[in-house]
Write a protein that binds this DNA or RNA. Structure first.
Lengths: 208, 208
DNA sequence: GTCTATAGGCGGATAGAC
DNA sequence: GTCTATCCGCCTATAGAC
């Protein structure tokens, strides 16, 4: 039975989230987190034994949110195009709300190669892959999309969703676009990206 | 007049590159770099005043290489397709050689909003943009590609080149691909990515 | 539970001999 | 230029009063 979190614990976790996502594990200072939570350093250690444990709580939560987005592919009653559009929309929404998340995960993953296997081992990745493979194989067989590997679709789609968000500061500077215009553009990409993917797959609306 | 680098300086820079690429700024230890260069810690400080300066040398060098890749668009005697293919090839080669670079720049850019303007202010970005705009406008007018904004092409192309490299650890784990097979796949993307972009632009080989 | 004070060690930087 | 020894500040973590 999971104990309800106290008000202080909630404040600490929220503070840790902001600091870790901004500074990374090495860059974050326990003092920063304490200040952000308006408590003193010793209290952090009282509630969470050490820095690593606090970090793991934040990271685990974020990774599960990333994983959740893939559940779209398991939804029945939607065809390939509908699932793709929903996936792109949710992916863009998620990364928009935490633009640092992918940077953070990828940076930490390169420092510690065990991180990804350790963190992902409890998620039923094989199930999601099987579901996805099943969906596209059906559409390939029906001639709705050209023969293609699922890795290709996922990687291209993720690239087109995620990169424009993490690279926003660079593109805003280069193309002299202000924040609000760039956010509008990211909204527009919820259409542009699936359109591009479907076009690449030579997608034909199924005749059911 | 730029002094030629001594053998030791070259070894230090090569070592620093490898360590910073692996661990990031905060995660890298001066001792790691010294070991990698087979010298002692004091020598690092003799040649480069401090850690930050050593890092900046690596970073500035890499940023100028990023910019160099865009010079492809200014090469005469190549048509749009040839320039695009060359750009993709060089971009993938570059990011492969320093995968942490986009991650670091983007993370630092969010911590310090002045970083991008400061690092990029000496590059003639406007010239490259004008050149690029000119090229695609010509092809649009000739009917070789559909009407499209240059921002769109650049952002999509960069996304498809860069993201698969920075997210490599995640995809290698998810799809059970080993390092060498993934490197092969990135090579294959030097074809796949321009193919996809050209397809999206409804590209027709010019009739010259 | 909350705080202050401090231990303890890591890691960047330097002094100074050769 | 190269090395050893060492300094010293920063930062995590804990002891212990209240």
């Amino acid at each position: 039975m999971k104990q309800a979190l106290s008000d202080t614990e909630i404040r600490i976790i929220a503070a840790a989230e902001r600091i870790f996502l901004l500074k990374g594990l090495d860059g974050a200072r326990m003092q920063d987190i304490a200040d952000e939570a308006s408590i003193n350093k010793a209290m952090l250690h009282y509630y969470f034994r050490n820095k690593q444990q606090l970090f793991d709580i934040i990271l685990d939560d974020k990774i599960s949110k990333v994983f959740d987005v893939f559940q779209v592919w398991a939804q029945p009653h939607l065809n390939f195009e509908q699932k793709l559009r929903k996936f792109v929309e949710e992916e863009i929404n998620l990364i928009k709300s935490f633009p640092i998340l992918p940077l953070f995960i990828m940076l930490e993953a390169r420092k510690n190669p065990d991180l990804i296997p350790t963190k992902l081992k409890n998620f039923p990745i094989q199930d999601v892959k099987a579901t996805f493979q099943n969906i596209i194989q059906t559409d390939i067989d029906k001639g709705n999309i050209r023969p293609v590997k699922m890795e290709e679709i996922i990687l291209n789609t993720m690239s087109l969703c995620v990169y424009p968000i993490i690279a926003a500061p660079l593109f805003q500077y280069t193309f002299k676009v202000d924040n609000s215009a760039y956010l509008d553009y990211l909204e527009a990409r919820k259409q542009l990206v699936p359109d591009m993917i479907l076009r690449d797959l030579n997608y034909k609306t199924p005749q059911n």
